[in-house]
Amino acid sequence: MSRRFEADFGRGERRRLIWNAAMTGVFSVAGWVAILFIFLIFVFTFKETLPIFTDPEVREEANLYKFFFERQDGPTLAEQFIWQPTSEQPKMSLIPIILGTLKATFVGLLFACPIGVAAALFSSEFAPARLREVIKPVIELLAGIPSVVMGFFALIVLATWLQSAFGFTYRLNAWNAGLALGIALVPIIYTISEDGLTAVPRAFREASYALGASRFQTAWSVVMPAAAPAIFASFVLAFGRAIGETMILLMAGGNAAITSFNLNDPLRTLSATIAAELGEVVNGSAHYSALFFMGTLLFVITFVSNTAGLWVIRRMQIRMQGEKA
């Protein structure tokens, strides 16, 4: 009946402990992967841009001044800022391309922000729970449409409809591209705004009702302002997505790098330019470095805007849930 306990704590099943230590190592390494690749992506994109600053031959053709300030002779803006890297006298102004990016983003946000927020407001404040369970999958399906499919639709179908409705000179223009882009942005704005709206504490609504306000008044004057950070963050994140969107704008924008503020004109964005021209560029040439410069620019812009948007969301989470979130 005796049981003597040899308290021999030092010896354990060594193999189990070795496995544990090994897997801890594996997981710790995996934790570094995300940081490593962000770093690598920046480094390698920027690396191919370096010749713009360091290589005198490349710098002749492609440099920061040329990108942003060089003007050709001519009366109109369109003739002064030109992107034509393949002509005999390569013209490397980024102005038309940046302008095109901004135009498309503008139209996209113009469409997506009101509609996304309105749908989110309806979903969070007025829709019965069953309806909400239907809206969410619809939004997810919309988000699941690949951008190449959206671009196809805009190119083949939407452009024709818009042209017959509004009589545009050019079939592919900022309206077409922007609208298609906007459709793709709605899910982002909806999802984040809706999260923010439903996170507003019930106490706010109850206080408002108790003062005699109607449902809509409460939604509009109390809930929405309380969720303003989330809504704003959704705009910022949608902006980041719009800036970086490639396929839709490549296919539906008309692919013409024109310096024009007119939304009826075709356009070209930064990402579309890279997509369209990188395939034919000579490795190491000025054009090549210029394209990588655009890539770095895209990386930096989206990085900054995404960090800002996520920071706002994080502050909101902390305020709602306390430190542990």
Partner: peptide
């Protein structure tokens, strides 16, 4: 200490301890 063996020493195998 359990049966005379101290628990809070660095060479103690916590895994084996918890089985006992």
């Amino acid at each position: 200490a359990i049966d005379g063996k101290e628990l809070y020493k660095p060479d103690v195998d916590v895994v084996a301890l918890r089985r006992k």
